[in-house]
Write a protein that binds this DNA or RNA. Structure first.
Length: 560
RNA sequence: GCGACGAUCGUCCAGUCUGGUCUAGGACAUCAGCCCUCCAAGCUGGUAACGCGGGUUCAAAUCCCGCUCGUCGCACCA
């Protein structure tokens, strides 16, 4: 008895949603192809995602390169954090996680230690290779990002991006300018991410190249309130398994309203909570039922290096268990700060204060003429150091370039200055979805059988095709009329599936199987009165509709 | 990457132990045609597979070795 998952995977291949890539060459783990229906489904899911995360808030979209020069990902911490220490046995060349070998050997060194330290420790403790019992090791990093070179010069390293977010962060300044410094500002990116997974598994669940939908919401940390909170109805609750509960051994999530979760500080930021609620609504729209949705708070050691609070959005996929379909992370100002440190580019935002703040400032200046007289030889090198001092508030320095300086060589000026702006580095909240996992989830929850036939009850908004058109029997003039109607509906902007092979029952079965919500059949009566039957995928009930009204009627039902 | 198990038409299964009769068989799906006035009906015909590489042998789907891919556990993550 095949499971629903197996049926869906088989259906996906047979009808062209997705299948493993490069099969003629024996396949390549972690790489998948989207066929025609898969392309349509993923496009519909992306469109629906926009309706939940982008358009209602007037957020913007961005598309940055997949290739990222190394320094960008060095700054973001990915180069040092997206790697595992790999110990290789010098005699049999088998590879292990170095920190795991050390832990087994009782060493104090662990994940935080340097590669050199770990290699030394492994060799000095004479840790034996679990396979061949040799004890000579080399420790190398295993980078879970794909690296490559830009152009012909070996020193210009680049990576395929592990997430779209860094592209967004790096471009933040320009986007901010284009958007005239609106805050909060959401910047969405739908694109591919690449991860050299040690072991890609479970079909489309763990991929080496995946489609991501990420939103970065930039906020003023002093105004972290979410102005859309009133849109959050209290009926939609969140099922949360908190870090505290998990540490305490609890395995069942708690069901709370967003308001309660924020009041109890279970969720540390309004925006994070609001996006969690949007995420839940998005999952409901994809056809996942409420009991199969929960948020799992990540433990400190599970969180990515950039995050202070993270919830995984998990969906129960039966035989696959709870599968993470999104990560919602409060990244604070980690990323923008990191890029500022690396580049010196100021990623801060200025906001005008309601009233300027006046303050008295004491600044010191050196008297050059006096200095020249006092130090006829050394004054040049002293001035060089003086010129490099940016802050001239407070007390003047007692020495310059190693030469002590009399306070009398400085003049003090007192001025009143007014500060008109407040500068801050925005904080970032990020929901990040994996498209392939969403496709699988929606297919699994849409999968039903009716009278031994498969019916994919995909929500109308994400069904890859809108309407099927058939002649009742494959004979003229029904074929001709059906083809005409198919053309008319295509012109009306609908995705039409036309089929005349087999018998009518078989054709309905074929269209049910890929979730086409409506089927139009041309029969004998069509010739006489210009009406056709319009059949509903889920109820199999039919009504007669005039051919002229057809396009309108289907569009009406779609939006109903 | 490690360990365990596995790999035959699109799918499921037969054949492998005991090498030859396998030019690899069946069912379902698919394609062409016939039939067909509402839910995978029937008939005829077709397409379609021994994962890859090497070895043993007169002879390999079948025995041996390596690799690849898959499933599951460990680890990693959307």
């Amino acid at each position: 008895m095949p499971t629903a998952l197996e049926d869906v995977v088989e259906l996906a291949r047979r009808r062209g949603f997705f299948w493993p890539a490069y099969e003629p060459y024996g396949g390549a783990a972690g790489l998948y192809v989207l066929g025609n229906l898969g392309v349509r489904l993923s496009a519909k899911i992306a469109q629906l995602w926009r309706e939940y995360f982008v358009t209602p808030f007037n957020f913007v979209e961005l598309d940055t390169p997949n290739l990222v020069p190394a320094p960008v990902l060095e700054a973001s911490g990915h180069v040092s954090n997206f790697r595992d220490p790999m110990a290789e046995c010098s005699s049999c060349h088998r590879k292990y996680r170095a920190d795991h070998l050390l832990a087994d050997a009782g060493s104090k060194l662990g994940e935080g230690s340097s590669l050199e330290e770990m290699e030394k420790e492994l060799n000095s403790l004479k840790v034996k290779c679990p396979e061949c019992k040799a004890s000579q090791w080399t420790v190398r990093p295993f980078l879970t990002m794909f690296d490559t070179k830009l152009g012909p010069y070996a020193d210009v390293t680049a990576f395929l991006r592990p997430e779209t977010a860094q592209g967004t962060f790096v471009e933040f300044k320009r986007i901010l300018e284009v958007e005239r410094e609106r805050m909060p500002l959401g910047v969405a990116q739908i694109g591919r991410g690449f991860r050299n997974e040690i072991s890609p598994r479970q079909g489309i669940i763990r991929l080496r190249e995946l489609r991501m939908m990420e939103l970065e919401v930039f906020l003023d940390p002093e105004k972290p309130e979410c102005q859309y909170l009133d849109r959050a109805d209290e009926k939609t609750t969140l099922r949360i398994l908190t870090e505290k509960a998990r540490v305490g051994g609890v395995t069942e999530p708690e069901e709370v309203s967003l308001k309660e979760a924020l009041e109890s500080e279970t969720i540390k930021l309004e925006w994070l909570g609001f996006l969690m609620l949007q995420s839940k609504k998005f999952m409901l729209a994809l056809g996942v039922p409420p009991p199969s949705i929960m948020f799992l708070e990540k433990l400190k050691e599970e969180r990515a290096h950039y995050s202070t609070q993270t919830f995984d959005l998990e969906v129960n996929l039966n035989e696959l268990g709870w599968v993470e379909v999104a990560g919602l992370a409060y990244r604070t100002d980690f990323d923008l700060k990191s890029h500022t440190m690396k580049t010196g580019v100021d990623f801060s935002v200025s906001v005008q204060l309601p009233a300027p703040i006046k303050r008295k400032v004491r600044r010191w200046f050196i008297d050059i003429e006096k200095l020249k007289k006092a130090y006829p030889v050394e004054w040049r090198s002293m001035m060089k150091e003086y010129g490099s001092i940016k802050e001239r508030e407070g007390e003047p320095p007692s020495s310059l370039a190693g030469v002590s300086v009399e306070p009398s060589l400085f003049t003090i000026k007192e001025t009143e200055e007014s500060v008109n702006v407040r500068k801050f580095i925005p904080h970032v909240v990020e929901p990040a979805f994996g498209v392939e996992r969403l496709m699988l989830a929606s297919l699994l929850y849409a999968y039903t059988t009716k009278e031994d036939r498969t019916v994919l009850r995909l929500p109308v908004e994400i069904a890859p095709q809108d309407v099927a058109v058939f002649p009742l029997i494959s004979k003229e003039p029904m074929i001709k009329t059906a083809i005409e109607i198919a053309e008319e509906l295509r012109k009306a902007g609908l995705a039409v599936f036309y089929d005349e092979s087999g018998t009518i029952g078989r054709r309905y079965a074929r269209s049910d199987e890929v979730g086409i919500p409506f089927a139009v059949t041309v029969d004998g009566q069509t010739e006489q009165d210009g009406t056709v039957t319009l059949r509903d995928r889920d109820s199999w009930t039919q009504v007669r509709v005039s051919r002229i009204q057809l396009g309108k009627e289907i569009l009406n039902r779609k939006t109903a």
